[in-house]
């Protein structure tokens, strides 16, 4: 895991979450921008997965439990596509709110992942 990359991801996830929540409250249906925001969060998560798999080979090892780290990462990877899928099936404002909630949930999980990798003592 690369720490600055995770913080960037976290900022993007919080931003995307706030943006989708706002759009949902304004009554917008899921559109390219809100689904796109969730997609950006997802792409960054997959990039983080690749980084985390490769990093230990360069001496960047998790200080905490690797299993716990990946439990969070894999769960986070599942969440935003699920919300995006939902928003394609159900076209109403609440699906936009749901996209926002999903992005914020990912943000919380990223924060935990950072704690596990950087601070947690196994």
């Amino acid at each position: 895991m690369i720490e600055w990359f995770l913080w960037l991801q976290l900022a993007v996830a919080v931003g995307a979450g706030a943006f989708c929540l706002m759009m949902g409250v304004l009554g917008r249906l899921p559109n390219d921008f809100t689904i796109g925001a969730a997609l950006v969060v997802e792409v960054l998560l997959i990039a983080q997965l690749v980084v985390s798999i490769v990093a230990p080979a360069f001496g960047n090892v998790a200080s905490g439990s690797t299993l716990e780290f990946y439990t969070y990462l894999v769960s986070a990877i599942v969440i935003s596509p699920a919300a995006a899928f939902w928003s394609l099936i159900e076209r109403n404002r609440w699906s936009t709110v749901i996209l926002g909630v999903a992005c914020l949930a990912v943000a919380v999980m990223l924060y935990r992942m950072n704690q596990i990798w950087v601070f947690q003592v196994a």
Partner: peptide, 28 residues
């Protein structure tokens, strides 16, 4: 009904969180 959808999603996320954590705790 719409708010209910939101409720379902939050439940699903919590289910995922609880499942992930307990599976990890039990395994490790």
């Amino acid at each position: 009904l719409g708010v209910g959808r939101l409720l379902i999603v939050v439940y699903a996320i919590l289910a995922l969180a609880a499942t992930g954590r307990s599976a990890f705790q039990i395994i490790s």
